[in-house]
C-alpha cells in the first residue's frame, strides 16, 4: 500500500497555493491533513501528480466571529475546532458533530476544509454545513468566489470546486441562542466508523413552543449531505410533537435512494435515516424547550 509517485511542493500563502494549482493542472491536489486522501493514495484509488502542502499557510488557520457568522479557515484542525470555546458557544451543533469525526489522532491532523472538499457521503462537517446553509469561500488565480453549501456538494466525494480552486474558509450562520436547540444523531456499526446514516437538526421555537426556524439535513444514506427543505417547511409553526415529526420524516423515503454496500443494505440505510432524522429533530426540540422552561 504505497502511493504512486507524485511531486510535492510546500507553499506558505494562499496566493502561492493558487498559483501552484493553476500551474499543476487537473492532477494537482491540495493536501492539508490528508486523513482521507492519503489512504486513498495508499490504495492507489487516488493518484495526484502533484501535492500542494498548505500546512504552512498561516492565513488558512483560525476561527473568528464575523457579525452573524462564524468563520472557520480551511486548514483549521478538526481537533482545534472541537476544543474551541467560540465553536462550542456559537455552533454547538458543529462541536457535537465534530466529536464523531474519526479519532483524536485523525482530528489532530484532519481539517475542516479538507472534510468539506473530500465530501465523503457520511462525513459530519459537510452535513452541518448543509444543515445550516454555510457559505464556502474559494480562491484561485482567477479570483475569489463564494459558494452556498447547497451548491457545493455534488455527489459522493465530489464538489463543484474547480480543479484550480483552493477552499479558504467556511462561514456558518450563527443563530440566536434563545429558545434554540440542536440535535445530532448517527448510526454506525462501531463507535467511530463511517456512519451508515446521520442527521443534524437545529430549531428555534417561539414563545408558544412552536417552530419559528428549523434546519434539518441527513447524510450517509445519500451520496451527499441532503438538506430536507420540504420537511423543514412542513414543520414550521408546529409544536414538533413526536407524531408530527414522524409523519414529516416519513417523507424521507421519497427523497433518497440509498445504496447498498458491505456494511448495510439500502433498505436499512433508508429506515435508519428516518430514525436519525426523527431523533435529531426531537433532540433539537427538547433543547429548545429546555430554554423555554
Amino acid at each position: 500500500m504505497k502511493a504512486a509517485p507524485f511531486d510535492y511542493v510546500r507553499v506558505s500563502s494562499i496566493d502561492e497555493a493558487c498559483q501552484a494549482l493553476a500551474d499543476g493542472g487537473e492532477d494537482a491536489r491540495v493536501i492539508a491533513g490528508g486523513q482521507t486522501l492519503i489512504p486513498l493514495m495508499a490504495m492507489r484509488l487516488a493518484r495526484p501528480a502533484l501535492l500542494i502542502d498548505i500546512n504552512d499557510v498561516k492565513e488558512l488557520s483560525g476561527i473568528a466571529v464575523d457579525s452573524d457568522h462564524l468563520v472557520i479557515k480551511a486548514r483549521t484542525r478538526q481537533a482545534d475546532t472541537l476544543s474551541s470555546e467560540i465553536v462550542q458557544e456559537k455552533l454547538p451543533l458543529l462541536a457535537d458533530a465534530l466529536s464523531h469525526v474519526g479519532h483524536t489522532q485523525t482530528r489532530n491532523r484532519g481539517t475542516v476544509g479538507g472534510s468539506l472538499v473530500n465530501a465523503d457521503p457520511s462525513a459530519e462537517i459537510p452535513l452541518i454545513a448543509q444543515t445550516l446553509g454555510a457559505i464556502i469561500v474559494a480562491r484561485s488565480t482567477r479570483g475569489e468566489r463564494t459558494i452556498a453549501a447547497g451548491d457545493f456538494f455534488d455527489s459522493a466525494m465530489s464538489t463543484t470546486l474547480a480543479p484550480d480552486e483552493c477552499l479558504t474558509e467556511v462561514h456558518f450562520p450563527i443563530w440566536s441562542p434563545e429558545n434554540t436547540g440542536f440535535g445530532f444523531h448517527e448510526v454506525s456499526i462501531r463507535d467511530s466508523d463511517f456512519a451508515l446514516a446521520v442527521a443534524a437538526a437545529q430549531t428555534t421555537l417561539d414563545a408558544g413552543g412552536n417552530v419559528q426556524k428549523l434546519a434539518v439535513a441527513i447524510c450517509g444514506a445519500t451520496p451527499a449531505a441532503l438538506k430536507l427543505t420540504d420537511i423543514e417547511e412542513a414543520l414550521i409553526g408546529t409544536d414538533l410533537n413526536d407524531d408530527i415529526i414522524k409523519v414529516a420524516c416519513a417523507k424521507i423515503d421519497d427523497l433518497i435512494d440509498p445504496q447498498s454496500d458491505v456494511h448495510a443494505d439500502a433498505a436499512y440505510r433508508g429506515r435508519v435515516a428516518k430514525v436519525m432524522a426523527r431523533r435529531a429533530i426531537s433532540d433539537a426540540r427538547d433543547g429548545a424547550k429546555g430554554d423555554l422552561v
Binding site: I31, D53, Q105, T106, R109
Partner: peptide
C-alpha cells in the same frame, strides 16, 4: 501513532516530507 509537535497522530497518514 507518534507524537507530532505535541499531538498524537498516525504516521501512516502523513508523508515524511510533510
Amino acid at each position: 501513532s507518534v507524537v507530532l509537535d505535541g499531538k498524537p497522530v498516525r504516521s501512516c497518514l502523513m508523508y515524511a516530507v510533510m
